[in-house]
Design a binder for these strands. Sequence first.
DNA 1: GTGAAAGCGCTAACAG
DNA 2: CTGTTAGCGCTTTCAC
Lengths: 351, 351
Amino acid sequence: MTSARVGPVSTPRRRRPSVGDVARVAGVSVGTVSNVLNKPELVSPETRDRVEGAIKELSFVRNGRARQLRQGSSTTVGALLLDIRNPFFTDVARGIEDRLAVDDLTLMLGSSDDDPRRESKFLRLFEEHGVLGLLVVPTTHETKHLAAIQERGVAVVLLDAPPGAAGLSSVWLDDVAGGALAAGHLLEQGHERIVFLNGPHSIRQCQDRREGVDRAVLAVGQDPARVVEEITLPRLDAAAGEAALAAWVAAHGGAAPAAVFCVNDLVAIGVQRALRRAGGFALLSGCAVVGYDDIDIAAELAVPLTSVRQPRHEMGHEAAELLLRQAAGEAEQHTVFQPELVVRASSVPGG
Amino acid sequence: MTSARVGPVSTPRRRRPSVGDVARVAGVSVGTVSNVLNKPELVSPETRDRVEGAIKELSFVRNGRARQLRQGSSTTVGALLLDIRNPFFTDVARGIEDRLAVDDLTLMLGSSDDDPRRESKFLRLFEEHGVLGLLVVPTTHETKHLAAIQERGVAVVLLDAPPGAAGLSSVWLDDVAGGALAAGHLLEQGHERIVFLNGPHSIRQCQDRREGVDRAVLAVGQDPARVVEEITLPRLDAAAGEAALAAWVAAHGGAAPAAVFCVNDLVAIGVQRALRRAGGFALLSGCAVVGYDDIDIAAELAVPLTSVRQPRHEMGHEAAELLLRQAAGEAEQHTVFQPELVVRASSVPGG
DNA sequence: GTGAAAGCGCTAACAG
DNA sequence: CTGTTAGCGCTTTCAC
């Protein structure tokens, strides 16, 4: 599987040159070196040149840890996400990074994997590291430990979570609105029954989306109990969606539901596959399908998928913004982002 | 789009308690506090309890920067990837992280966006930060600046790149083998002509894959110039793949090629879409398609896609491993990973 | 077992 | 303009 060869010699790990070394070579004092680094306008051109020459000669790179220790400041922000591999979170991370770059700050990323123990490990690590602030997708509803961190002087913002303990800013997405958007669209198309393939209500997002669905149904004067048939999936992937819909079709003598709303796009892809397997293109095109997340591939499918899109990048950007404000002493603040519906062929007649 | 409300008061940013504060509260010296933290077995149980009580009382969190400054050590590794949003790199990042977690090290991530200026900005930032080592996907073939960093005492490993400047370890994927795998498979299926939708040869991976294709053709005693029809795409996404194949079909009186090898899965998805649009399922199922990357969705498509899978997580893991070895003074080392072919319906008759 | 003191590399205050 | 010096918070000798 792998091949390896060994190179020449190992790198000797000698001490990095310090401002003292630079000062010696340039024939000035450490204070002057520091001034060249931080307030060059205070230094005469000739000495500045000498110092810069010495810096080049020694390939001096300043020790940021010592600098920050002395200044008491920090230029890194920690973000603790649920899963670094999930495109949802990488888009968020990119939004964070883009905002931080404006102020020349860097991001330290961690994945909690939704495990509270991993979460607290990373939190301790970040805090010891002296981060300027912390963006956290919490693993539990309990956020007192995060408020405690903020009490100790590290700004904390809840990410992808509604307001928690007092004092913590938060940024999240309106899942109620997302559910309402999807269901409203299907109702508008004239469908009178909606199969909703959802995850367990212990996940806030799932519960909220269901609430949104109900609201949309009520808004048109119908009874959710009659209109909505919710099926709870064991996992939220394509296989689970396919199995659930195959079972539905089998239980209904080979007929497909008129409309299906899926808690995410992968599930929707599974639904499309089940429909195609059960009754080919005819069955597939006779069933309106709406997904959630608007993953990259949604537009590329055989039948392009209607989906609820969430402003993930913006959410990250805003979270970083709130963090910096909070670190600057501003009061806590809460932002909720609204999703939008991207209508494609999968949900409209003749699509 | 967003709504915001303002909360109560802002958090006062008071000084973090130090070992000195803990010592005062516990009625011991700072040395003893340090011992409790680092060598608890040297401290008598009673004083240890007193100190631990004081730590709890003050919610003391040790200042890692000062610690590392004093010790001269570091516990963070920097990784500079091309794009943090790309699933390829997030899988790699996760592999890195998993290896680092074993030694309780943390990862600082950066995205160079393939821009040498961003690259050098991040490199300086990482180096000032005092990282233990650096994993870099280089933006250019030139790696002297990375060797220079290593000269200054920071271990550097090239990621997803073949060996560069002397002294740098490297980890990469065998794209020649990947190209040969895909083409070999198509030849084995009896196809005598292969359309290869590739990217520009200025991208090493594209050039290598072409070389692999040629080798596979030569291996069965055929002439690449006769067998392979390479089309260079302007971009490597589904739209580009669709356009290229639609043009091919139009130029061949509505006929599809017998076999198409695509430089990545997105392009392959575009190809499938073009085939379906041009001639429905019949045309689609009559054309063997092979992609590259084995993205999550490849198995979920209407016609599941045969693809070349690369061990990305393992590559990250190995890169971190080599970095740690190099940081420990071992000699440079080079590892190349072999891809594997995942055969699905898109490339086999009756699929 | 515990305390006192030095020093990691840097910046900031102050003196000249 | 430049040099001297104190000290950020911690670990680490070395005495006691």
